[in-house]
C-alpha cells in the first residue's frame, strides 16, 4: 500500500451548508502533502473527519489500506490552528496525560517526553504551569505533544502561525526530519512560501470542492505558460522587438537587470522550441537574461481559485 491515506467521495454538510462536496484525495506514504485553500474552503472540516472528530455524511476514508477506525487516532498526530493546552496544568503532567490519551503507557510516555524535552532543552519546564510560559515556549510543548506518540500521519493546521522565525525554523527542521523517518505529513495552510519549500504534493480546496491535486512539480508544469523573460543588450532594440513580434507573442516585461537595452516577455506557442528563440536572440545581441516564467504556488492558487469562482 503506497498511500497512507485515501479519501474517497467524502461529503459533509452542516444543515443546509455543504462543507465538503464529494472530495477525494490520495496522500502517498512518506510525503509532505500541502492542503491548500482560502479560509472557509473546507480544509478544517476535512481534517476533522480524518481525526474522527466529526463524521462524513457519505464517502470513505482509508487509513493504511483499511477503513478508518477509532483506534487509528493513536497513529495520527494533530496540531490544530488554534493551539491550546490546559493553562493551569503542569507541563509534564499535561504532556503525560495527552500521551496516554494517544494510547502510550505511562512509562513509555515518560521516556519519549524526556527525549523531546532534552532535545528542545526545556526539561526545566516540567513542573511549570502553561500559564507561566511564554507563547513561544508553549508552542514547543504543543509540538512535542503532537509528535511524541510517533504517529504515522501528522496533521499540521497552519503550523508556522504564531512561531517566531527561529522557532519556525526549528520546527520546520523537525518536520523534515520526521518525514525522513517515514512519517506522512499533511500541511494545511494558506501560507504559500512554506508550501514551496516543503511540500511534495498539494491539493487545492475551494468552496467545498477539490479543484487541484497532484505532485507539486507536475502541477507547476501544468501551469507553465511557455513564457520566457528575456533581456538583450543590443544597439537597435526597436528593430529587434519588431522582428520578435512577427515571430512570437510579445509583451513588455518588468524586471531588474543592468545593461539591458531590451526587456520582454516572449510567449511560445505549443511545439515551439525555446532553443530557436534563444538562437534568434543570440544572433541579435548579447543575451543577458533568459528565464522561463514558472508560476509559484501562490499564483497557481490565485489562478485556480479565480477560475473556480
Amino acid at each position: 500500500m503506497n498511500n497512507l491515506l485515501e479519501i474517497k467521495n467524502v461529503v459533509k454538510t452542516y444543515g443546509d451548508f455543504t462543507a465538503l462536496n464529494n472530495v477525494s484525495l490520495t496522500i502517498p506514504r512518506g510525503s509532505v502533502f500541502g492542503l491548500l485553500g482560502p479560509n472557509g474552503a473546507g480544509k478544517t472540516s476535512l481534517i476533522r473527519i480524518i481525526n474522527q472528530i466529526t463524521m462524513q455524511d457519505t464517502g470513505e476514508v482509508y487509513f493504511d489500506g483499511k477503513l478508518l477506525a477509532p483506534n487509528d487516532v493513536e497513529h495520527i498526530g494533530y496540531m490544530p490552528e488554534e493551539r491550546g493546552l490546559y493553562k493551569s496544568m503542569k507541563v509534564g503532567e499535561q504532556a503525560l496525560y495527552l500521551a496516554q490519551l494517544k494510547g502510550l503507557s505511562k512509562s513509555e510516555a515518560k521516556k519519549r517526553l524526556k527525549y523531546w524535552f532534552d532535545k528542545f532543552d526545556i526539561s526545566a519546564w516540567w513542573n511549570k504551569k502553561i500559564e507561566e510560559l511564554s507563547k513561544g515556549m508553549a508552542q514547543k510543548v504543543q509540538f512535542i505533544v503532537t509528535v511524541m506518540h510517533k504517529p504515522k500521519l501528522l496533521i499540521f493546521d497552519e503550523p508556522f502561525s504564531g512561531f517566531d522565525p527561529i522557532n519556525a525554523q526549528l520546527i520546520a527542521k523537525e518536520i523534515l526530519q520526521l518525514r525522513a523517518e517515514g512519517t506522512t505529513i499533511i500541511f494545511s495552510t494558506h501560507r504559500m512560501e512554506s508550501v514551496e519549500e516543503m511540500c511534495d504534493y498539494i491539493a487545492l480546496i475551494d468552496q467545498s470542492n477539490k479543484i487541484l491535486e497532484g505532485k507539486l512539480d507536475d502541477i507547476k508544469r501544468a501551469f507553465r505558460t511557455n513564457t520566457f523573460q528575456v533581456g538583450l543588450a543590443t544597439t537597435n532594440p526597436n528593430e529587434v522587438e519588431a522582428k520578435l513580434k512577427q515571430l512570437y507573442a510579445v509583451s513588455p516585461a518588468d524586471f531588474r537587470i543592468i545593461n539591458a537595452g531590451l526587456k520582454l516577455n516572449v510567449t511560445l506557442k505549443k511545439g515551439e522550441n525555446p532553443n530557436d528563440l534563444l538562437s534568434f536572440l543570440t544572433s541579435q545581441g548579447h543575451v543577458q537574461h533568459f528565464v522561463e516564467l514558472v508560476p509559484d504556488v501562490n499564483e497557481i492558487f490565485m489562478q485556480a481559485v479565480n477560475k473556480n469562482s
Binding site: 472528530i53 491550546g84 490546559y86 490519551l101
Partner: peptide, 18 residues
C-alpha cells in the same frame, strides 16, 4: 467552557470521543 477557551478541546477530541 475552560477547555473551550483554552482551545485544548480540539486536541482532546482528536484522541477521544466527545
Amino acid at each position: 467552557i475552560e477547555e473551550k477557551t483554552s482551545r485544548i478541546v480540539e486536541i482532546i477530541v482528536s484522541s477521544v470521543k466527545p
